[in-house]
Simulated assay, not measured.
Amino acid sequence: MSDTIPILDLGPLLSGEPGALDRLGGELRRAFTEVGFYFVRNHGVPPGLVDAAFAAAARFHAQPLEAKLAMPFDQNNQGYLPMRGNTSRMNAVEGVKKPNANEAVFFKRELPPDHPDVLAGRRFRGVNQWPAALPGFRETALEYSAAMETLGRRLVPIYAAALNLPHDWFDDKFREPMFTLRMTHYPQQEPTAAEDEWGLAPHADTSFMTILAQNKVPGLSLRLPDGRWIDAPALEGCFLVNGGMMLRRWTNNLFLATPHRVTNRSGQERYAIPFFMDCSYDAVMAPIPTCVTPEKPARHKPFTYLEFMSEYSGANYGERGRSAAGVELQGA
């Protein structure tokens, strides 16, 4: 089914070929209005770094449970989330399912303890927690995050071209992108497991952009706009990219936030290292001008990363996702 998901080749763009950005913009627009996912190749990320990040995820989850619990998931959505620690609610499709059968650890931009946002207690701008007994883990996670941020920044002007905006339209909104690296472990699920038992239940992402390294262990599937579920192919040397509810709201529902799900009946342990990238913390996301017309007026109020993610976290992570004020926010 790889012919169903468009493939964007960054080679001409990175080599400075004239017109490459606008051509890619047209391809991305088709991807997000017809499928909601695209592959990107010739992206400049070393394959060895991707392999190292997968290995780091496996190392982390191989630790004793008590070592992982020493990094508890906090109100900033950083740290370790135990098995079945969250339920897809705000972003669920096909109804709310059972708690997700995975465990995960989350990292954001590395901020020092004396950073002004840390000292001010700004939510989602906390200090990362790192495992105490995994030499080299922190360095690998940070190097991979930096590579993903670089790739995401390369992709953002293509979104501007796709939306008939000046190529630099998003620049001031991505001065310091918010991002999350999630390292997930999906244990083997028994073939006899209930049909509504998911490693990750059908859902739409929250993000502006999710960059997913290709996985040698199958399990990911996505729902096309016509309602068909297809297994996502793994194209060697590519990343799979999709948008989420933030992107959909920002584009006044022009771009798709395509539902997807994960189940692991491969007979192997499965790891995933999705990278979620969003605009800067204080950027205001009002419906993009080229997505608003007299026939299609603005459907959403302007919002910020903090507002959106506080609502999402309270809905999906329960007690662990309480807001800084201690009040759990309800999902949509």
Rank of each mutant, 00 (worst) to 15 (best):
K97S: 13
P47F: 07
A62R: 13
E27R: 13
A101Q: 07
T87F: 02
L69C: 06
L151C: 10
V96G: 01
A70S: 09
P18D: 13
A31H: 05
G152Q: 11
K98C: 07
N42Y: 07
V45Y: 04
A31L: 03
A52D: 10
P18S: 11
H61V: 08
L119K: 11
N42W: 09
F124N: 06
N100L: 12
V50P: 06
L134R: 08
P46Q: 14
Q129V: 12
N128M: 07
A67R: 09
E34T: 09
F124V: 07
D117C: 04
F60A: 05
R23A: 06
Y80F: 15
S145L: 05
N76L: 07
G85R: 14
K68W: 10
Y80H: 11
A62M: 11
F54P: 01
A132V: 05
E110L: 00
Q78N: 06
L119F: 04
L151G: 10
A53T: 00
M83T: 13
A55Q: 06
V93E: 11
A70Y: 08
R41T: 15
P82C: 09
L119S: 03
M71R: 12
T140L: 09
F124L: 02
E103P: 05
P116L: 00
G16R: 13
V118T: 01
K98H: 12
P112H: 09
M148G: 02
G79N: 07
E143W: 02
E34N: 00
R125D: 11
D74T: 12
G136S: 01
V96D: 04
K68C: 14
G48E: 15
F54H: 03
L142A: 08
V45L: 06
S88D: 11
E139C: 12
V96A: 01
G152L: 03
D74I: 12
F73T: 01
R122I: 13
P64D: 14
E94C: 04
G48Q: 13
M71P: 00
L134Q: 10
A52W: 06
A133Y: 04
K108G: 15
A58S: 15
R123V: 13
N86K: 05
L21Y: 10
R138K: 12
E103D: 03
N91S: 13
E17R: 09
F39R: 00
L142P: 05
E34P: 01
H115Q: 03
E17Y: 02
E110V: 08
G95F: 02
G126K: 08
N128A: 11
N91I: 09
R153Q: 14
G36V: 08
N100F: 06
A132T: 09
Y80V: 14
L81T: 02
L49R: 04
A92H: 03
A58M: 08
E149Q: 15
N42Q: 14
